[in-house]
């Protein structure tokens, strides 16, 4: 299912944060959302998830976000916020199982199908071996993966993830991105993910959207967007850009304007 936003405008406590954003995530693709702190990445994700009110249109396939009930949204869009809140010492398995809430009738427990989804999601995020551990006792990175597994278990056509890779070790950063790619490719999901790691974005995303000051600064494939000029314009940095067999390699080398 395609998620499309047209001239999306959002105000937060009177200040305009998004100035008319156009963005589209096609089914089967992973779109990376880049931009400096305060550019509006999280706000855009929240607006697309319907968590904050905004002007403009958000379309989900044939329908508009505004026309959907909360329960329907829960079955169409999974949202993984940046804050990693785990309120109670639930076991990892129970926690991931809560991802199935939108699909469960009131008062019903998890069906065999639900449990299978949760198993698969835990395998994807490499947390199946932690299934019986209280989630609150895990390390920060493990908790991030458990929460991502929860979002994956929600099994929605659209997945919006806010910095899911931050705080993960390099191997698990790649595990995370690989899982998102598999979701997109294998199940035709539309995945929009905000990232700070330029190389990770360049190598694992099909397309890149760069935000600056609440507007789209660049949009296209990684090769089109991750250029010295855009990095200087959007992030104010210089970077060493190279390419290997699998894609781009980027390393920030200095602040633009400094010698």
């Amino acid at each position: 299912m395609r998620i499309v936003a047209k001239s999306l405008k959002t105000k937060l406590s009177g200040r305009t944060v998004l100035h008319g954003i156009d963005i589209e995530v096609a089914p089967g693709s992973v779109v990376g959302l880049l931009g400096p702190n305060g550019a509006g990445k999280s706000t855009l994700l929240r607006a697309l998830a319907g968590q904050i009110s905004s002007e403009g249109v958000v379309g989900l396939g044939e329908r508009s976000l505004a026309s959907l009930s909360l329960a329907e949204r829960g079955r169409l869009i999974a949202y993984l916020p940046q804050e990693r809140t785990i309120g109670w010492p639930l076991s990892v398995e129970k926690l991931v199982g809560l991802g199935r809430l939108p699909w469960r009738a009131f008062g019903k427990g998890l069906s065999a199908g639900d449990i299978a989804f949760c198993r698969a999601a835990m395998e994807e995020m490499d947390v199946a071996h932690l299934a019986d551990r209280p989630a609150t006792e895990l390390s920060g990175g493990e908790q991030a993966r458990v929460l991502a597994a929860r979002a994956i278990a929600q099994d929605t056509p659209v997945l919006l993830a806010d910095e899911p890779a931050s705080g993960l070790d390099p191997a698990h950063q790649m595990t995370m991105m690989a899982a998102l790619r598999r979701l997109a490719a294998g199940k035709r999901r539309a995945v929009l993910v905000s990232l700070h790691d330029l190389t990770l974005a360049a190598r694992w995303c099909d397309r890149i959207v760069m935000l600056k000051d609440g507007a789209v600064a660049a949009e296209g494939t990684p090769a089109e967007t991750m250029t010295a000029e855009t990095l200087r314009a959007v992030f104010g940095i210089t970077a060493w850009i190279d390419r290997d067999d699998c894609g781009l390699v980027l390393a920030p080398t200095g602040l633009a304007g400094t010698p």
Binding site: A49, L70, P102
Partner: peptide, 20 residues
């Protein structure tokens, strides 16, 4: 009771799980 369960993850995730 469902809302209470969903709120384990905080309000943002709870809302995304279809909680009113």
């Amino acid at each position: 009771s469902r809302a209470l369960d969903a709120l384990t993850f905080g309000e943002a995730t709870a809302a995304s799980l279809g909680t009113n």
